[in-house]
Design a protein around this nucleic acid. Sequence first.
DNA 1: GCCGTTTTCGGCCCGACTGTTTTCAGTCG
Length: 574
Amino acid sequence: MGQVRNSEVADLFTLVANLLDIQGANPFRVRAYRNAARVLANESRSVAEMVDRDHELETLPGIGRDLAEKIAEIVHSGHLPLLQELEKKTPPSLVSLMKIPSLGPKRVRVLYEKLGVKNIDDLKEAAEAGKIRELPGFSEKSERHILEEIRKLRLRGAERMKWADAEEVVRELVPYLEDVEGVKRVTVAGSFRRKRETVGDLDILVACSKSSPVMERFIHYPEVGEIVSHGPTRSIVILRSGLQVDVRVVPEISYGAALVYFTGSKSHSIKMRGMAVKSGLKINEYGVYRGKRRIAGRTEEEVYRAVGLPYIEPELREDRGEIEAALKGRLPKLVEIGDIRGDLHSHTLATDGANTLEGMAEAAKKLGYEYLAITDHSRHLTVAKGLDEERLMQQIREIDRLNEKLVGIVLLKAIEVDILEDGELDLPDRVLRHLDLRVCSIHHRFGLSREKQTERLIRAMDNPYFNILGHLTGRLINRREGYDIDFERVFAAAKERGCFIEINSQPERLDADDTLCRQAKEMGLKFAISSDAHSVESLKFMRFGVSQARRGWIEADDVINTRPLKELKRLLVR
DNA sequence: GCCGTTTTCGGCCCGACTGTTTTCAGTCG
């Protein structure tokens, strides 16, 4: 099999772009490759499968005849002749040099041509030997800077921070800035505001009076590890945690324009600018202009209205069709945390959770839920003390007793049952039938081939007690790739059988992710957004799953746990 | 290399900061 993944094609195009860039190629050609890489990485349908359907690839934005042919070459032969050509002229390892801040394509090229520097080790050697200061465009200072950056690069892997971790930083930093005299508004924009599952840095916008010392105070924030740059309207620091934070001061009259600009995504704002140009306008971070005259900019709504669009939620701003949808008045009304009426995945002390049934029920009630499903693990997951038939029956009886006492919250009798390698569920039907719902998940044999893994899931869904497919891909952000499955087949099978897809809210899971949510939604599937809580505190993870769902264009109506209990129960009977 | 209500050529987002520098190129977001 070994079908080529979209991300693999995207990586090859990114490499081509970087090598072309270093070789000094036409910058627009470079951009075309970068743009194509992004489009492919964001596309949920498999491009490998689109190759053989007539001209289908060329319907993707940024993919023309030439790139479509190159994709076909990659899919059919496994490599790209253009790349081999480029690699003859320029060693691909040069790309790694661009990880050093201040080294871009031009300077990397100089390093290679004048000193033969091919990788970070060469770079370090050349810098230590004092050779770099001799080069045009470099100095003794930049040489020291390079050595320092190499040291730092080795210290911290250049890993993106999980959204939930970034939020911890935001929760302290934003009030600190808000507290400075003269500060009127503080907003974290960028990928944080778009609720991407990970963020590379924080972009913070501040509106303040002219005399406000906010920049001075920012660079003296106790957590600052290093000041990268410092100016009156823009400063960049790196916190001790390694997170880069960028603060920009913008006038209040431009706040909306700046929000649009710095929330991005880059390609969303570029598309907006393009639309503006067509109607004789210019958009920048200060406002919308007709000639010299500013016609909008105080609020985001104003900026969107100026180019004939309704307000677009930050989570949608990825240039994945939201602008076209907005033009047609077809933007989704995204699900909100307040729409959620209950949680369909949680654990207790019986397996690997930290709290009792009562404890979980009380906590769920405090969150305003109507119901909470207790889904402890099944016997196969021995490390988590998974429940066998007998212990599960005992838990069922306990829940029945408890429900008689509980007011304002109902516990659902449920299980997170393992999907075994052959597609059987880990507990017999005679016990599963006593439950209100079953979340079915894979917890072992992640490495099966795509064919086998897909069959395993579909066979499991053949069981009439299969309700919700837990953490769709099993990936762990920054730690583990998901298992290889044919999403289209799995979604089609789930739809046919009346099964639902979980959006798992654990910050390192957020699985299914945004693009898969969107794909599944387009195939007509419904979702359960669940916390997978292992403690009373982590019931609150729900909002992370809601964010991911919103990025996937999911509406309240697409989510089964926005329904009242009675309606939910009907949906759970296949 | 893509794209087209400015359509097959000639455009392609734009401003801040740094320092390679003394008027501007490179990098970055």
